[in-house]
Amino acid sequence: MRCRSEARIDWSLKRPVRGIGIWFMSKTAFEVHDMTVAYQRRPVLWDIDLAIPEGKLVGIVGPNGAGKTTLIKAALGLVPLASGKVEIYGKSYEEQRHLIGYVPQRESVDWDFPVTVRDVVLMGTYGRLGWFRRPGKSEREIADRCLQQVGMAGYAKRQIRQLSGGQQQRVFLARALAEEAQLYFLDEPFAGVDAATETAIVELLHALRSTGKTVLVVHHDLQTVSDYFDYVILLNMRLVACGPVETTFTTENLQKTYGGRLTILDEAAEAIRRQKPLP
C-alpha cells in the first residue's frame, strides 16, 4: 500500500501536466489529526482536524493570535506538537520534506544579511543538494528561472537590502519555487506589499494550482478571500470551519471566527456582499 502511493507521487512530480490535477482531485495533500500546540503551557491551537485535497488554493483566515502562523509552523515541524499528528500525502513530515515549499514571514529574517537576491533563491535548492554539495550551474539556472517567474529577473545580483517590501516578498516566493515542491505554505505573503506585487503573487498562485500544486496561504484581508482562494480554513485557536469557499466562507462562520469584534464583522459583511449572491 505504501509503496504504491509513493510511486503515484513520483509520477505526478515528473508529469506536472495541466489537467492531471483533476485525476488527483480526490487525493489528500495535507492532513492534520487532533493537533494541539502549546507555548509554555498555554495552548495556542486545540484539537485541530482538517484535510486539504490536492490542487487547492487555501486561505488560512482568522483574527490576530488565532494561531494561523502556528498552524503552518507546526505542520512544518518548526514548533513541537503537544498532541496529534500531521500528514503530508499520507506520510509523516520527516518523510515528505522534499514535497514541501515554505515562505516564512518577510520580517523573520535580517534583510541586511550579506547575500544577493540569487543567493537567497539558491537556498531553495539546498534541501535537495544535501550535505556539503555546493549549488552549481543547474541550480543557478533553476534560481534564475524562478526569479523570472516572479518578475525579478533583473535583480539577481542586487543585495537584498536594496529591495522594496514587495520585491523582498517576491524573492522569498522565488526561493520557495526553487524548492520544486508539491505543497506550499505561505505565511502572510501579502503583508506590506505593493498592489502590483499582490496581483503578481495571486497570478503565480493560480499558475501553481493549474499544475496540480497545493498552496496554503495565511491571509488577513477578508475582502479578497473569495476572489483569491477556492478553499478556506477558518481558525480561532480552534478550527471553526474548513472547506470550499462557497459553502464555508459564510457570515455565520465568520461570526464564529471573529466573535464580537465589530469592525471586523463589518469587514466580513462587506466580504460576503462581494461574494457571488447566495440563494
Partner: peptide, 19 residues
C-alpha cells in the same frame, strides 16, 4: 559554508528543509 549561511540567514527555513 552552505549550511552555516542558511542557518544564519533563515534558521526556520533551514529547519523546514530538514537541516
Amino acid at each position: 559554508f552552505k549550511e552555516f549561511e542558511l542557518t544564519c540567514f533563515d534558521s526556520d527555513f533551514a529547519r523546514s528543509q530538514g537541516w
